[in-house]
Nucleic acid binder design. Structure first.
Lengths: 146, 146
DNA sequence: GGCCGAGATGCAATTCGGTTGCGCCGGCCT
DNA sequence: AGGCCGGCGCAACCGAATTGCATCTCGGCC
């Protein structure tokens, strides 16, 4: 997709560092998966993560799922539900972990985080409803598919 | 879920009218599915639709899927991707079919349309990107689950 | 450096939402 | 009333995600 073949190896040290900093157990699959997310500017499906890893380190499909969930629970990544009924995962690059918008291409499915789009900080809800997270997704066509 | 057991029978005439008005073929499953959506103030999963229909008219699972997709393509309903990897469907009550926000309860999965929340009409995208639809979803706890 | 235990990994089987192929049936046009 | 186009039901299928369990390994401890 887009990039020729992400050099996630370059992001391995950063990935390791983040896992260490979180005080969590450092394993090869964990570092590799996080590095893959860091290396990509688009949010990846479990399958894309698996493929991206295949060349350097074979990781079981189930492990990829588990590591991704684990990254999300740690706050190191976030999960985006897609139109195609699969989840995509993106690395949380800043610790602030601020709410941000996403763009999904209707044709190629590519999903990227939008930096410049403001997510409404407050919304009016029915009585008794408690907001927790606001998700803003834009559907359309990306530059390559237009 | 919320309502005691939606009286979608009361919405059957309206459902039939809408299908007729669209110039489409009127069948029992189509009217029943649309009535079920109209009767509910929350967006329904295919399964909830099926259950809601079971008491009055047994409709095959596949038919429910097909009718729901058909309603979406006709603009009579809209489809919302959920956190639980299933789709929910809500009737489009006004013809204007304006973009609107949704609220999803993290605990019970109940999804409702928010009337009072403004969806940003314009967002700034990377060069070459073409927006088509903006989706705004709020996660949190509903009044019943709080 | 070697040992040990909690917990991570891999494999296989399973679940489940959604889709597809196809023959029959039923709305709707004439 | 007749006929045909297309919707319906049935069954088989697909692929994303999950679970159970045996094995392996990271990282603390001696």
């Amino acid at each position: 997709m887009g990039k020729p073949r992400a050099r996630h190896a370059a992001h391995l040290p950063a990935a390791r560092e983040r896992i260490r900093a979180a005080g969590e157990r450092l394993t090869a699959p964990r570092a590799a998966v996080l590095a893959a997310l860091l290396a990509s500017d688009a949010a990846l499906t479990h399958h894309e993560v698996e493929d991206s890893l295949a060349t350097s380190l074979a990781v079981d499909r189930v492990t990829v799922y588990r590591v991704l969930d684990w990254l999300v629970s740690l706050g190191l990544a976030h999960r985006i539900p897609g139109e195609d009924r699969t989840w995509r995962f993106g690395a949380n690059r800043d610790d602030s972990h601020a709410p941000h918008a996403h763009f999904t291409c209707s044709r190629c499915g590519r999903t990227v985080c939008l930096e410049g789009v403001a997510v409404p900080p407050r919304v009016s809800l029915p009585r008794g409803y408690l907001p927790r997270r606001v998700e803003l997704t834009v559907q359309g066509l990306c530059a390559a598919c237009r």
